[in-house]
Amino acid sequence: MQAFMQLNGLVAPLDRANVDTDAIIPKQFLKSIKRAGFGPNAFDEWRYLDHGEPGMDNSKRPLNRDFVLNQARYQGASVLLTRENFGCGSSREHAPWALEDFGFRVVIASSFADIFFNNCFKNGMLPIVLSAEVVESLFQEVEVDIGYKLNVNLAAQTVTTPTGKVYPFEVDNVRKHNLLNGLDDIGLTMQQQDKIKAFEVKHKQAQPWLFV
């Protein structure tokens, strides 16, 4: 997994609550058996005016100019600013894959759906929870400041605005460590394989019907 340490990134505001993973990456693109290449179809139904299907040349499709991520000032954004309960609904990991492939490494919201939140950490992305008030003030700042960037420092657990306001955020220690070092979860768990085997023996004795 790619590590995440620090980022000074252009911010794109997506001013909606309850953005679901069906919106982030619509179902027709889930037919792919690959992990990569979902970026051009991130937010497909909001981003394009026509109906998207896998295999289309997305560069030739009509863009919805009203959709925020199509605006010139947000091209190259790596920080997505959004509202509460981001990533709700389907567990599809294609959602963080699409956001990451689009160029986002950080998502800031006042809350996240659990599965999406968890999936981000598996893909070198950092979801950050800030209070609804702070999120609101960031929306206001982005609106009036073209080229608005936020500095995100995972080690220090801070988000710093261009004017130097610093917002601390919480992150689980294990996840932080893994993200900072780009560690593969499976490799770490494999280090506990003796414990897994021992548990399995005991578990099988107690509930043999689970192992047939």
């Binding site: 999936n119 499976i186 897994i196």
Partner: peptide, 14 residues
Amino acid sequence: IGTSEVEHVMATQC
């Protein structure tokens, strides 16, 4: 669970 976790459970049962 997400697909990374599907792989994790396949590989480690955990």
